[in-house]
């Protein structure tokens, strides 16, 4: 009996701090997101007014919100395809081919992942600067020195693609290392027999490598969507703050603006609820669509 008591005490002492902290800083705020989405509240003022689903109704008539939806979806689709595509190709090159300096390339490609998003945003602001930026200066070799500068961060049509560039730059190395790990577990004999039958590299890539790491690709895809919604917020907040004129506003930057800067807290939380549900639904859809029978040779 004595021992049982000591065991219980030990268990409680070990688990309680983690449970309490998670409860205060994860469970309560998450619950508040959902609860406050039904209120009209400025955040600082004492009067909260229950308005039911008014915030959501307002949301569906908010052109600015739909602009952020468009931008977010654009970023999810383009950044995901480019990043995962390049990451797969480079992972295949580095794990399958006999090349010199493989380790060197792996180490270099991973560097962006250890830098703060603020640092990357500052670097890309220097690249995209319209007057003295690296990119325009490089392009002037081809376009001539007098060519009108491209406003990478100032032109509403271009700016979202400038964000794409920074996001892809940041993510390629991480996913490449991820895929290299799973590619290294594919049996060598498969490639040997494919070689004997004269299958080309590209053929081998699509017929052996991709199918065999499909499970891994699926998992990364699901995570990539959720992480893309978060990363796009970090990049936009640091690089453009949603501007010019909402051209780079994304889900969470719009939510943050409404809830924190604009003090329309309840409305911001309604955006949070919609985005949260959207990201889960999208992940579930992607997960279902990409379902294949697991291949094992």
């Amino acid at each position: 009996m004595q021992k049982n008591k000591a065991r219980s005490r030990f268990i409680v002492a070990c688990v309680a701090p983690a449970v309490i902290l998670s409860f205060i800083f994860l469970v309560v705020p998450t619950f508040n997101v959902f609860r406050m989405s039904l209120y009209k509240w400025g955040g600082y003022s004492p009067n909260k007014q229950f308005v039911g689903f008014d915030n959501f109704v307002k949301l569906f008539n908010d052109a600015k919100f739909f602009q952020s939806v468009r931008n977010s979806i654009l970023l999810i689709v383009i950044v995901t395809i480019i990043t995962i595509g390049f990451a797969l190709v480079f992972a295949a090159i580095l794990s399958r081919e006999k090349l010199k300096g493989q380790n060197f390339f792996r180490v270099i490609f991973y560097i962006p992942n250890i830098l703060s998003v603020v640092v990357i945003s500052a670097i890309f602001s220097a690249i995209y600067d319209s007057n003295y930026g690296m990119l325009n200066s490089f392009l002037s070799i081809f376009r001539g020195a007098d060519a009108e500068p491209v406003y990478w961060l100032g032109d509403q049509k271009i700016v979202i693609y400038s964000i794409v560039g920074a996001m892809v730059w940041q993510a390629i190395g991480y996913y490449m290392v991820m895929y290299m790990a799973s590619m290294s577990s594919i049996s060598e004999s498969l490639y040997e027999s494919a070689n004997l039958e004269g299958a080309s590299r590209i053929r081998q890539f699509f017929s052996i490598t991709i199918p065999l790491i499909w499970t891994n690709i699926r998992t990364t895809l699901t995570f990539f969507i959720i992480s893309n919604i978060n990363m796009s917020f970090l990049f936009v907040k640091a690089m453009t703050n949603g501007g010019p004129d909402g051209a780079t506003e994304v889900f969470l930057s719009y939510m943050y603006k409404q809830a924190y800067t604009n003090s329309t807290y309840g409305y911001g939380m309604a955006i949070g609820v919609v985005v949260f549900s959207f990201s889960f639904a999208l992940s579930a859809i992607v997960n279902a669509v990409t379902k294949r029978e697991t291949l094992e040779f």
């Binding site: 994860l26 309560v28 705020p29 508040n32 959720i226 939510m255 943050y256 924190y260 949070g272």
Partner: peptide, 15 residues
């Protein structure tokens, strides 16, 4: 694992 801090940063702040 699925709760991302970007969603709850403002609620924590208001707390």
């Amino acid at each position: 694992l699925f709760i991302n801090v970007n969603y709850i940063v403002v609620p924590i702040f208001l707390m």
